[in-house]
Amino acid sequence: MSEQQTNNAAIRPEAVIAARDLTKRYGKTSVVDAINFDIAKGEVFGLLGPNGAGKTTTILMMLGLTEISAGRVSVLGFDPARQPLQVKRRVGYLPDAVGFYDHLSAVENLAYAAKLMGLPMAERSRRIAAALTRVRLVEVADKRVATFSRGMRQRLGLAEIIVKRAEIAILDEPTSGLDPQATIEFLDLIRELKAEGVTVLLSSHMLDQVQRVCDRVALFRAGRIAMMGSVAELSVQVLGAGFVVEVEADGAGIARRLAAIPGVGNVETLADDRFRMTADRDVRADAARAVVAANGALRRLSVDEPSLEAIYARCFQVPPSGGVRDAA
């Protein structure tokens, strides 16, 4: 779905976050320039783009932490500028490189946040214990946060969102600087949140990680959303087709049968028994059926899923191995 398609459209009832012509200006410079998007309940939505593209500013406007210059944004039906407390009661925020009070323990840090949330004491203790168990920090609950690694701090930040029982979790660069194991654990926690029906808005530079957890992504460029949709949709838009399926099989008329599969855009014959198809979905099952229908013998079937990195590189015209930071 492109930005233009949603521009000035009415906010869909199922959208938990909806932005219409959302703009942030500093003087004459627009850092977020009339962006439009809808995020549905339970969706994991990724904000991608180079540094300074406007991702964090968009998040801050959603939380009412910075003024909106023009346009509007609705979060769970509330206006963050007029009803910031309603929004902040329901939205959890994990900032980039989250900070805690180092002289306090994990429990004390969470207790302070819970007090600010207005939770009664008994409820506070119960929720904090459950959240620390969930993020696997229960063994260090009484240790000072000064001794925590970055990964542990990020998990503690997520625990705060769990304590709040947030309907929307906004995570700004949550895996930046984490080691691979900590990243995997963190992404698992995001999937768990999604499974519970929490809507997750994820801002990140880590394209492979975004692809692993996000249902849809928006690519930010110079304050505007350049593209928006699922990875498969974007790959069709940007790369022509998303999935590349290779088939190795003997049989007559296989190329013709493969070309007839719905969703297949192109079939290339690499050798007498080797074919490469581009498709807008994973068509391996259909390809296998096509080979069987042609009385052929299937020897190999492989698929290359669309890569967000390739989409990003094409969109921002940077080499795929260059990474996002280099694009800034």
């Binding site: 939380l63 407390l85 902040k88 900070g99 805690f100 180092d102 600010l116």
Partner: peptide, 13 residues
Amino acid sequence: RRTLSRILAQPIY
């Protein structure tokens, strides 16, 4: 300490 945005993201002014 980078605690300000986290604290102000709680339901307080």
